[in-house]
Design a protein around this nucleic acid. Structure first.
Lengths: 233, 233
DNA sequence: AACGACCTGGAATGCCATTCCAATATGGAA
DNA sequence: TTCCATATTGGAATGGCATTCCAGGTCGTT
Protein backbone atom coordinates (compact mmCIF):
# COMPACT_ATOMS: atom_id res chain seq x y z
CA UNK A 1 0.00 0.00 0.00
CA UNK A 2 2.04 2.93 1.19
CA UNK A 3 2.59 2.83 4.90
CA UNK A 4 5.12 5.24 6.24
CA UNK A 5 6.28 2.97 8.99
CA UNK A 6 4.49 4.31 12.02
CA UNK A 7 7.11 6.79 13.25
CA UNK A 8 6.67 5.95 16.91
CA UNK A 9 3.76 7.15 18.99
CA UNK A 10 2.77 10.79 19.14
CA UNK A 11 5.26 12.31 21.52
CA UNK A 12 3.68 15.57 22.43
CA UNK A 13 0.13 16.69 22.06
CA UNK A 14 -0.43 20.37 21.70
CA UNK A 15 -1.82 22.07 24.75
CA UNK A 16 -5.41 21.28 25.42
CA UNK A 17 -7.72 24.23 25.01
CA UNK A 18 -9.02 25.96 28.08
CA UNK A 19 -11.99 27.72 26.53
CA UNK A 20 -14.63 25.06 25.98
CA UNK A 21 -15.61 24.10 22.48
CA UNK A 22 -19.38 24.26 22.42
CA UNK A 23 -21.96 23.45 19.81
CA UNK A 24 -22.98 27.08 19.95
CA UNK A 25 -19.50 28.32 19.18
CA UNK A 26 -19.25 25.88 16.30
CA UNK A 27 -22.54 26.96 14.79
CA UNK A 28 -21.57 30.59 15.19
CA UNK A 29 -18.32 29.99 13.34
CA UNK A 30 -20.16 28.03 10.66
CA UNK A 31 -22.45 30.99 10.03
CA UNK A 32 -19.44 33.27 9.70
CA UNK A 33 -17.80 30.96 7.19
CA UNK A 34 -21.02 30.54 5.22
CA UNK A 35 -21.51 34.27 5.08
CA UNK A 36 -18.04 35.00 3.87
CA UNK A 37 -17.63 32.29 1.27
CA UNK A 38 -20.98 30.62 0.71
CA UNK A 39 -21.79 26.99 1.12
CA UNK A 40 -18.45 26.05 -0.40
CA UNK A 41 -16.70 28.05 2.27
CA UNK A 42 -17.97 25.82 5.04
CA UNK A 43 -15.40 23.04 5.30
CA UNK A 44 -14.18 21.13 8.29
CA UNK A 45 -10.70 22.32 7.49
CA UNK A 46 -11.69 25.97 7.73
CA UNK A 47 -13.70 25.17 10.82
CA UNK A 48 -10.83 23.42 12.59
CA UNK A 49 -8.49 26.26 11.74
CA UNK A 50 -10.81 28.96 13.04
CA UNK A 51 -11.51 27.01 16.16
CA UNK A 52 -7.94 25.79 16.57
CA UNK A 53 -8.94 22.18 16.99
CA UNK A 54 -9.31 18.93 15.03
CA UNK A 55 -12.22 17.38 13.18
CA UNK A 56 -12.86 14.82 15.91
CA UNK A 57 -13.64 17.53 18.43
CA UNK A 58 -16.21 19.07 16.14
CA UNK A 59 -17.80 15.73 15.39
CA UNK A 60 -18.24 15.15 19.06
CA UNK A 61 -20.58 18.14 19.23
CA UNK A 62 -22.22 17.85 15.81
CA UNK A 63 -23.17 14.63 14.00
CA UNK A 64 -22.27 15.79 10.49
CA UNK A 65 -22.16 18.66 8.06
CA UNK A 66 -25.85 18.53 7.18
CA UNK A 67 -26.79 18.89 10.82
CA UNK A 68 -24.41 21.80 11.10
CA UNK A 69 -26.08 23.48 8.13
CA UNK A 70 -29.47 22.85 9.69
CA UNK A 71 -28.32 24.32 12.98
CA UNK A 72 -26.89 27.38 11.24
CA UNK A 73 -30.17 27.80 9.38
CA UNK A 74 -32.19 27.56 12.54
CA UNK A 75 -30.00 30.05 14.35
CA UNK A 76 -30.25 32.65 11.63
CA UNK A 77 -33.95 32.21 10.95
CA UNK A 78 -34.84 32.38 14.59
CA UNK A 79 -33.04 35.69 14.90
CA UNK A 80 -34.62 37.04 11.74
CA UNK A 81 -38.15 36.20 12.82
CA UNK A 82 -37.70 37.51 16.34
CA UNK A 83 -38.41 41.12 15.47
CA UNK A 84 -41.13 42.79 17.47
CA UNK A 85 -44.12 43.99 15.55
CA UNK A 86 -44.36 47.73 15.09
CA UNK A 87 -46.63 47.86 12.07
CA UNK A 88 -50.25 48.87 12.41
CA UNK A 89 -52.29 47.05 9.79
CA UNK A 90 -52.13 43.32 9.15
CA UNK A 91 -50.98 44.01 5.62
CA UNK A 92 -48.11 46.10 6.90
CA UNK A 93 -47.28 43.38 9.36
CA UNK A 94 -46.98 40.85 6.56
CA UNK A 95 -44.70 43.25 4.76
CA UNK A 96 -42.65 43.55 7.91
CA UNK A 97 -42.04 39.82 8.39
CA UNK A 98 -41.47 39.32 4.69
CA UNK A 99 -38.88 42.05 4.58
CA UNK A 100 -37.25 40.56 7.65
CA UNK A 101 -36.81 37.25 5.89
CA UNK A 102 -35.84 38.94 2.65
CA UNK A 103 -33.11 40.88 4.39
CA UNK A 104 -31.87 37.86 6.30
CA UNK A 105 -31.53 35.94 3.03
CA UNK A 106 -29.84 38.91 1.45
CA UNK A 107 -27.35 38.98 4.29
CA UNK A 108 -26.92 35.19 4.33
CA UNK A 109 -27.25 34.13 0.70
CA UNK A 110 -26.89 30.43 1.53
CA UNK A 111 -30.04 30.62 3.61
CA UNK A 112 -32.64 30.32 0.87
CA UNK A 113 -31.59 26.87 -0.30
CA UNK A 114 -31.15 25.66 3.26
CA UNK A 115 -34.60 26.87 4.20
CA UNK A 116 -36.19 25.06 1.30
CA UNK A 117 -34.32 21.92 2.36
CA UNK A 118 -35.23 22.37 5.99
CA UNK A 119 -38.91 22.94 5.29
CA UNK A 120 -39.18 19.68 3.43
CA UNK A 121 -36.65 17.49 5.17
CA UNK A 122 -37.59 18.46 8.65
CA UNK A 123 -41.21 19.63 8.84
CA UNK A 124 -41.38 18.55 12.45
CA UNK A 125 -38.39 20.60 13.51
CA UNK A 126 -38.59 24.05 15.01
CA UNK A 127 -38.00 26.04 11.83
CA UNK A 128 -40.99 25.02 9.74
CA UNK A 129 -43.73 25.81 12.26
CA UNK A 130 -41.94 28.98 13.25
CA UNK A 131 -42.04 30.27 9.71
CA UNK A 132 -45.59 29.19 9.06
CA UNK A 133 -46.67 30.75 12.30
CA UNK A 134 -44.94 34.04 11.67
CA UNK A 135 -46.65 34.41 8.34
CA UNK A 136 -49.85 32.59 9.12
CA UNK A 137 -50.80 34.68 12.12
CA UNK A 138 -50.71 37.77 9.98
CA UNK A 139 -52.58 36.09 7.16
CA UNK A 140 -55.30 35.25 9.63
CA UNK A 141 -55.39 38.89 10.71
CA UNK A 142 -55.86 39.81 7.08
CA UNK A 143 -59.34 38.40 7.27
CA UNK A 144 -58.80 35.30 5.17
CA UNK A 145 -61.46 32.65 5.88
CA UNK A 146 -60.11 29.70 7.82
CA UNK A 147 -60.37 27.26 4.95
CA UNK A 148 -57.87 29.36 3.00
CA UNK A 149 -55.27 29.82 5.70
CA UNK A 150 -52.90 27.10 4.66
CA UNK A 151 -53.09 27.85 0.96
CA UNK A 152 -52.65 31.58 1.40
CA UNK A 153 -49.77 31.22 3.82
CA UNK A 154 -48.01 28.71 1.61
CA UNK A 155 -48.31 30.98 -1.40
CA UNK A 156 -46.87 33.83 0.60
CA UNK A 157 -43.95 31.82 1.92
CA UNK A 158 -43.22 30.41 -1.52
CA UNK A 159 -43.19 33.85 -3.08
CA UNK A 160 -40.93 35.26 -0.39
CA UNK A 161 -38.48 32.37 -0.61
CA UNK A 162 -38.46 32.42 -4.39
CA UNK A 163 -37.94 36.14 -4.70
CA UNK A 164 -35.45 36.41 -1.84
CA UNK A 165 -33.52 33.39 -3.12
CA UNK A 166 -33.24 34.85 -6.58
CA UNK A 167 -32.27 38.22 -5.19
CA UNK A 168 -29.56 36.72 -3.01
CA UNK A 169 -28.16 34.70 -5.89
CA UNK A 170 -28.09 37.84 -7.99
CA UNK A 171 -26.33 39.73 -5.25
CA UNK A 172 -23.62 37.07 -4.99
CA UNK A 173 -23.14 37.06 -8.75
CA UNK A 174 -23.03 40.86 -8.83
CA UNK A 175 -20.42 40.76 -6.12
CA UNK A 176 -17.93 39.49 -8.64
CA UNK A 177 -18.65 42.51 -10.76
CA UNK A 178 -17.01 45.83 -10.20
CA UNK A 179 -20.07 47.97 -10.32
CA UNK A 180 -23.72 47.03 -10.05
CA UNK A 181 -25.04 49.72 -12.35
CA UNK A 182 -22.48 48.91 -14.95
CA UNK A 183 -23.33 45.24 -14.69
CA UNK A 184 -27.07 45.80 -15.05
CA UNK A 185 -26.34 48.06 -17.95
CA UNK A 186 -24.35 45.44 -19.79
CA UNK A 187 -26.98 42.77 -19.22
CA UNK A 188 -29.62 45.16 -20.40
CA UNK A 189 -27.63 45.87 -23.53
CA UNK A 190 -27.23 42.21 -24.31
CA UNK A 191 -30.97 41.72 -23.95
CA UNK A 192 -31.51 44.55 -26.38
CA UNK A 193 -29.24 42.79 -28.83
CA UNK A 194 -31.37 39.64 -28.85
CA UNK A 195 -33.29 38.58 -31.91
CA UNK A 196 -36.58 40.55 -31.79
CA UNK A 197 -38.47 37.64 -33.32
CA UNK A 198 -37.34 35.11 -30.74
CA UNK A 199 -37.27 37.36 -27.69
CA UNK A 200 -39.62 40.29 -28.16
CA UNK A 201 -40.35 40.61 -24.48
CA UNK A 202 -36.80 40.49 -23.16
CA UNK A 203 -35.98 43.22 -25.65
CA UNK A 204 -38.90 45.32 -24.55
CA UNK A 205 -38.13 45.17 -20.85
CA UNK A 206 -34.36 45.41 -21.17
CA UNK A 207 -34.53 49.02 -20.23
CA UNK A 208 -36.52 48.34 -17.07
CA UNK A 209 -33.60 46.29 -15.83
CA UNK A 210 -31.38 49.32 -15.55
CA UNK A 211 -31.22 50.76 -12.11
CA UNK A 212 -34.29 48.98 -10.78
CA UNK A 213 -34.54 48.59 -7.01
CA UNK A 214 -34.60 44.95 -5.91
CA UNK A 215 -36.17 45.66 -2.57
CA UNK A 216 -38.89 47.76 -4.14
CA UNK A 217 -39.55 45.10 -6.73
CA UNK A 218 -39.83 42.54 -3.98
CA UNK A 219 -42.41 44.62 -2.16
CA UNK A 220 -44.38 45.23 -5.34
CA UNK A 221 -44.54 41.50 -5.95
CA UNK A 222 -45.55 40.94 -2.37
CA UNK A 223 -48.42 43.35 -2.89
CA UNK A 224 -49.63 41.30 -5.84
CA UNK A 225 -49.81 38.24 -3.63
CA UNK A 226 -51.48 40.13 -0.81
CA UNK A 227 -54.01 41.66 -3.14
CA UNK A 228 -54.81 38.25 -4.53
CA UNK A 229 -55.13 36.71 -1.11
CA UNK A 230 -57.55 39.37 0.09
CA UNK A 231 -59.40 39.75 -3.21
CA UNK A 232 -62.42 37.65 -2.25
CA UNK A 233 -63.23 39.95 0.70
CA UNK B 1 6.19 10.13 -1.03
CA UNK B 2 4.76 6.91 -2.28
CA UNK B 3 5.62 6.22 -5.90
CA UNK B 4 4.91 2.75 -7.11
CA UNK B 5 7.81 2.70 -9.51
CA UNK B 6 6.22 3.30 -12.88
CA UNK B 7 5.46 -0.31 -13.86
CA UNK B 8 6.45 0.12 -17.50
CA UNK B 9 4.21 1.69 -20.09
CA UNK B 10 0.62 0.67 -20.58
CA UNK B 11 0.79 -2.49 -22.67
CA UNK B 12 -2.72 -2.81 -23.98
CA UNK B 13 -5.42 -0.20 -24.18
CA UNK B 14 -8.96 -1.34 -24.11
CA UNK B 15 -10.76 -1.14 -27.40
CA UNK B 16 -11.48 2.35 -28.50
CA UNK B 17 -15.15 3.14 -28.76
CA UNK B 18 -16.79 3.20 -32.15
CA UNK B 19 -19.88 5.19 -31.27
CA UNK B 20 -18.84 8.79 -30.89
CA UNK B 21 -18.96 10.41 -27.50
CA UNK B 22 -20.77 13.68 -28.03
CA UNK B 23 -21.56 16.58 -25.78
CA UNK B 24 -25.19 15.82 -26.36
CA UNK B 25 -24.88 12.24 -25.21
CA UNK B 26 -23.01 13.40 -22.12
CA UNK B 27 -25.65 15.97 -21.22
CA UNK B 28 -28.37 13.41 -21.77
CA UNK B 29 -26.66 10.98 -19.41
CA UNK B 30 -26.12 13.75 -16.89
CA UNK B 31 -29.85 14.49 -16.84
CA UNK B 32 -30.58 10.81 -16.29
CA UNK B 33 -28.18 10.66 -13.38
CA UNK B 34 -29.51 13.87 -11.87
CA UNK B 35 -33.06 12.62 -12.12
CA UNK B 36 -32.34 9.32 -10.49
CA UNK B 37 -30.13 10.43 -7.63
CA UNK B 38 -30.22 14.22 -7.44
CA UNK B 39 -27.29 16.54 -7.63
CA UNK B 40 -25.22 14.16 -5.58
CA UNK B 41 -25.83 11.46 -8.12
CA UNK B 42 -24.01 13.34 -10.84
CA UNK B 43 -20.38 12.32 -10.47
CA UNK B 44 -17.72 11.83 -13.08
CA UNK B 45 -17.37 8.29 -11.88
CA UNK B 46 -21.01 7.48 -12.57
CA UNK B 47 -20.74 9.34 -15.84
CA UNK B 48 -17.68 7.41 -17.01
CA UNK B 49 -19.29 4.13 -16.07
CA UNK B 50 -22.50 4.84 -17.91
CA UNK B 51 -20.64 6.05 -20.94
CA UNK B 52 -17.93 3.41 -20.71
CA UNK B 53 -15.10 5.89 -20.94
CA UNK B 54 -12.69 7.88 -18.79
CA UNK B 55 -12.83 11.33 -17.28
CA UNK B 56 -10.45 12.79 -19.84
CA UNK B 57 -12.83 12.01 -22.66
CA UNK B 58 -15.66 13.80 -20.92
CA UNK B 59 -13.50 16.80 -20.13
CA UNK B 60 -12.65 17.08 -23.77
CA UNK B 61 -16.30 17.80 -24.54
CA UNK B 62 -17.26 19.72 -21.41
CA UNK B 63 -15.09 22.19 -19.47
CA UNK B 64 -16.25 21.21 -15.97
CA UNK B 65 -19.10 20.05 -13.82
CA UNK B 66 -20.73 23.45 -13.49
CA UNK B 67 -20.93 23.77 -17.24
CA UNK B 68 -22.42 20.32 -17.41
CA UNK B 69 -25.08 21.30 -14.89
CA UNK B 70 -25.80 24.45 -16.85
CA UNK B 71 -26.12 22.45 -20.06
CA UNK B 72 -28.43 19.95 -18.40
CA UNK B 73 -30.53 22.83 -17.09
CA UNK B 74 -30.77 24.45 -20.46
CA UNK B 75 -31.73 21.20 -22.16
CA UNK B 76 -34.54 20.47 -19.73
CA UNK B 77 -35.89 24.01 -19.57
CA UNK B 78 -35.91 24.40 -23.30
CA UNK B 79 -37.97 21.26 -23.63
CA UNK B 80 -40.34 22.32 -20.87
CA UNK B 81 -41.02 25.73 -22.38
CA UNK B 82 -41.46 24.43 -25.90
CA UNK B 83 -45.10 23.46 -25.47
CA UNK B 84 -47.48 24.92 -27.98
CA UNK B 85 -50.19 27.16 -26.64
CA UNK B 86 -53.65 25.70 -26.54
CA UNK B 87 -55.23 27.92 -23.91
CA UNK B 88 -57.66 30.63 -24.88
CA UNK B 89 -57.36 33.49 -22.42
CA UNK B 90 -54.08 35.11 -21.42
CA UNK B 91 -54.68 34.11 -17.85
CA UNK B 92 -55.07 30.49 -18.87
CA UNK B 93 -51.93 30.78 -20.93
CA UNK B 94 -49.98 31.94 -17.92
CA UNK B 95 -51.34 28.98 -16.01
CA UNK B 96 -50.22 26.75 -18.85
CA UNK B 97 -46.59 27.89 -18.91
CA UNK B 98 -46.43 27.95 -15.14
CA UNK B 99 -47.70 24.41 -14.89
CA UNK B 100 -45.22 23.37 -17.56
CA UNK B 101 -42.36 24.67 -15.47
CA UNK B 102 -43.88 23.32 -12.27
CA UNK B 103 -44.13 19.86 -13.76
CA UNK B 104 -40.63 19.99 -15.19
CA UNK B 105 -39.27 20.87 -11.76
CA UNK B 106 -41.37 18.15 -10.21
CA UNK B 107 -39.90 15.65 -12.64
CA UNK B 108 -36.35 17.02 -12.29
CA UNK B 109 -36.11 18.14 -8.67
CA UNK B 110 -32.55 19.44 -9.11
CA UNK B 111 -33.82 21.95 -11.64
CA UNK B 112 -35.11 24.63 -9.29
CA UNK B 113 -31.77 25.39 -7.67
CA UNK B 114 -29.99 25.22 -11.01
CA UNK B 115 -32.43 27.64 -12.55
CA UNK B 116 -31.96 30.14 -9.76
CA UNK B 117 -28.21 29.85 -10.25
CA UNK B 118 -28.47 30.11 -14.01
CA UNK B 119 -30.73 33.16 -13.90
CA UNK B 120 -28.24 35.06 -11.81
CA UNK B 121 -24.93 33.67 -12.97
CA UNK B 122 -25.70 33.76 -16.63
CA UNK B 123 -28.33 36.39 -17.43
CA UNK B 124 -26.95 36.72 -20.93
CA UNK B 125 -27.25 33.03 -21.73
CA UNK B 126 -30.16 31.48 -23.52
CA UNK B 127 -32.11 30.36 -20.49
CA UNK B 128 -32.85 33.66 -18.78
CA UNK B 129 -34.40 35.48 -21.72
CA UNK B 130 -36.27 32.35 -22.73
CA UNK B 131 -37.95 32.16 -19.37
CA UNK B 132 -38.68 35.85 -19.14
CA UNK B 133 -40.07 35.81 -22.63
CA UNK B 134 -42.30 32.82 -22.04
CA UNK B 135 -43.87 34.44 -19.05
CA UNK B 136 -43.58 38.04 -20.12
CA UNK B 137 -45.40 37.66 -23.39
CA UNK B 138 -48.42 36.34 -21.55
CA UNK B 139 -48.16 39.03 -18.91
CA UNK B 140 -48.29 41.59 -21.65
CA UNK B 141 -51.38 39.90 -23.05
CA UNK B 142 -52.94 40.22 -19.62
CA UNK B 143 -53.20 43.93 -20.21
CA UNK B 144 -50.54 45.06 -17.78
CA UNK B 145 -49.27 48.56 -18.62
CA UNK B 146 -45.79 48.53 -20.08
CA UNK B 147 -44.16 50.15 -17.06
CA UNK B 148 -45.19 47.16 -14.97
CA UNK B 149 -44.03 44.41 -17.28
CA UNK B 150 -40.73 43.64 -15.67
CA UNK B 151 -42.01 43.81 -12.12
CA UNK B 152 -45.06 41.67 -12.83
CA UNK B 153 -43.10 39.07 -14.76
CA UNK B 154 -40.41 38.87 -12.11
CA UNK B 155 -42.99 38.36 -9.39
CA UNK B 156 -44.58 35.60 -11.40
CA UNK B 157 -41.31 33.82 -12.10
CA UNK B 158 -40.25 34.14 -8.48
CA UNK B 159 -43.48 32.67 -7.23
CA UNK B 160 -43.34 29.78 -9.69
CA UNK B 161 -39.73 28.97 -8.86
CA UNK B 162 -40.32 29.26 -5.14
CA UNK B 163 -43.42 27.13 -5.09
CA UNK B 164 -42.14 24.55 -7.55
CA UNK B 165 -38.80 24.34 -5.77
CA UNK B 166 -40.46 23.72 -2.44
CA UNK B 167 -42.80 21.20 -3.95
CA UNK B 168 -39.95 19.30 -5.60
CA UNK B 169 -37.96 19.25 -2.36
CA UNK B 170 -41.02 17.94 -0.56
CA UNK B 171 -41.49 15.26 -3.18
CA UNK B 172 -37.91 14.07 -2.82
CA UNK B 173 -38.24 13.97 0.96
CA UNK B 174 -41.55 12.15 0.72
CA UNK B 175 -39.89 9.64 -1.58
CA UNK B 176 -38.03 8.24 1.38
CA UNK B 177 -41.34 7.67 3.09
CA UNK B 178 -43.44 4.64 2.51
CA UNK B 179 -46.72 6.39 1.99
CA UNK B 180 -47.46 10.01 1.28
CA UNK B 181 -50.76 10.13 3.12
CA UNK B 182 -49.29 8.48 6.13
CA UNK B 183 -46.39 10.90 6.06
CA UNK B 184 -48.60 13.99 5.84
CA UNK B 185 -50.68 12.55 8.59
CA UNK B 186 -47.75 12.16 10.92
CA UNK B 187 -46.49 15.67 10.21
CA UNK B 188 -49.96 17.01 10.80
CA UNK B 189 -50.15 15.20 14.10
CA UNK B 190 -46.85 16.60 15.25
CA UNK B 191 -48.05 20.10 14.40
CA UNK B 192 -51.11 19.48 16.46
CA UNK B 193 -48.91 18.50 19.36
CA UNK B 194 -47.07 21.84 19.35
CA UNK B 195 -47.45 24.29 22.18
CA UNK B 196 -50.64 26.28 21.42
CA UNK B 197 -49.13 29.41 22.92
CA UNK B 198 -46.02 29.36 20.76
CA UNK B 199 -47.53 27.99 17.57
CA UNK B 200 -51.23 28.76 17.43
CA UNK B 201 -51.32 28.95 13.66
CA UNK B 202 -49.44 25.74 12.88
CA UNK B 203 -51.83 23.96 15.21
CA UNK B 204 -54.83 25.50 13.52
CA UNK B 205 -53.83 24.56 9.99
CA UNK B 206 -52.39 21.15 10.83
CA UNK B 207 -55.54 19.54 9.57
CA UNK B 208 -55.37 21.34 6.22
CA UNK B 209 -52.07 19.60 5.59
CA UNK B 210 -53.72 16.20 5.39
CA UNK B 211 -54.41 15.09 1.88
CA UNK B 212 -54.01 18.51 0.29
CA UNK B 213 -53.25 18.58 -3.42
CA UNK B 214 -49.90 20.23 -4.19
CA UNK B 215 -50.73 20.99 -7.77
CA UNK B 216 -54.00 22.55 -6.81
CA UNK B 217 -52.33 24.60 -4.11
CA UNK B 218 -49.79 25.81 -6.63
CA UNK B 219 -52.53 26.96 -8.99
CA UNK B 220 -54.41 28.68 -6.19
CA UNK B 221 -51.27 30.59 -5.28
CA UNK B 222 -50.71 31.44 -8.91
CA UNK B 223 -54.18 32.92 -9.02
CA UNK B 224 -53.35 35.19 -6.11
CA UNK B 225 -50.41 36.56 -8.04
CA UNK B 226 -52.41 36.91 -11.23
CA UNK B 227 -55.22 38.65 -9.43
CA UNK B 228 -52.76 41.05 -7.87
CA UNK B 229 -51.06 41.74 -11.17
CA UNK B 230 -54.31 42.55 -12.92
CA UNK B 231 -55.94 44.30 -9.98
CA UNK B 232 -55.29 47.84 -11.19
CA UNK B 233 -57.30 47.27 -14.41
C1' DA C 1 -4.43 9.10 43.91
C1' DA C 2 -6.94 6.62 40.92
C1' DC C 3 -10.92 5.71 38.12
C1' DG C 4 -14.16 6.57 34.43
C1' DA C 5 -16.91 9.65 31.79
C1' DC C 6 -16.27 13.33 28.99
C1' DC C 7 -13.73 15.66 25.52
C1' DT C 8 -9.81 16.57 22.22
C1' DG C 9 -7.03 16.58 17.93
C1' DG C 10 -4.30 14.16 14.63
C1' DA C 11 -3.85 10.30 11.41
C1' DA C 12 -6.12 7.28 8.17
C1' DT C 13 -9.82 6.26 4.68
C1' DG C 14 -12.36 6.63 0.70
C1' DC C 15 -14.83 9.57 -2.59
C1' DC C 16 -14.67 13.34 -5.73
C1' DA C 17 -13.35 16.91 -9.46
C1' DT C 18 -9.85 17.95 -12.17
C1' DT C 19 -5.35 17.56 -14.74
C1' DC C 20 -1.91 15.16 -17.37
C1' DC C 21 -0.45 12.36 -20.74
C1' DA C 22 0.55 8.30 -23.47
C1' DA C 23 -1.91 5.96 -26.74
C1' DT C 24 -5.09 5.60 -30.44
C1' DA C 25 -8.16 6.81 -34.38
C1' DT C 26 -9.11 9.39 -38.71
C1' DG C 27 -8.84 11.59 -42.86
C1' DG C 28 -6.39 14.17 -46.06
C1' DA C 29 -1.65 15.00 -48.36
C1' DA C 30 2.05 12.87 -50.67
C1' DT D 1 -1.31 3.07 -50.26
C1' DT D 2 1.52 5.12 -46.65
C1' DC D 3 2.25 8.61 -43.49
C1' DC D 4 1.37 12.46 -40.64
C1' DA D 5 -1.19 16.00 -38.09
C1' DT D 6 -4.92 16.56 -35.55
C1' DA D 7 -8.90 15.05 -32.95
C1' DT D 8 -10.16 12.08 -29.36
C1' DT D 9 -9.78 8.68 -25.77
C1' DG D 10 -9.18 6.53 -21.09
C1' DG D 11 -6.36 5.61 -17.24
C1' DA D 12 -3.22 7.24 -13.65
C1' DA D 13 -1.96 10.92 -10.54
C1' DT D 14 -3.20 14.95 -7.56
C1' DG D 15 -5.19 17.49 -4.07
C1' DG D 16 -9.38 18.59 -1.43
C1' DC D 17 -13.09 17.05 1.19
C1' DA D 18 -16.26 14.62 4.88
C1' DT D 19 -16.04 11.28 7.94
C1' DT D 20 -14.11 7.65 11.13
C1' DC D 21 -10.81 5.92 14.42
C1' DC D 22 -8.20 6.09 18.19
C1' DA D 23 -4.65 7.26 21.46
C1' DG D 24 -4.56 10.15 24.46
C1' DG D 25 -5.72 14.19 27.96
C1' DT D 26 -8.95 16.49 31.78
C1' DC D 27 -11.77 16.64 35.54
C1' DG D 28 -15.11 15.49 39.03
C1' DT D 29 -15.97 11.90 42.09
C1' DT D 30 -14.54 8.67 45.48
Amino acid sequence: MCQDGGMATREQRSQRRTDGLTRERIVETAVTLLDSAGERGLTFKALTERLATGPGAIYWHVPNKDALLAAATEAVVTTALATGTTAATPREQVREVSLGLFDAIDEHPWLAAQLTAELSRNPRGAVTPRIYDSFGRRVRALGVPESGWFTATSALVHYVLGAAGQNAANAVAADHEVDRDEFLDSVSSSWEALDPDDFPFARAVADQLRGHDDRRQFLDGLDFVLTGITAGR
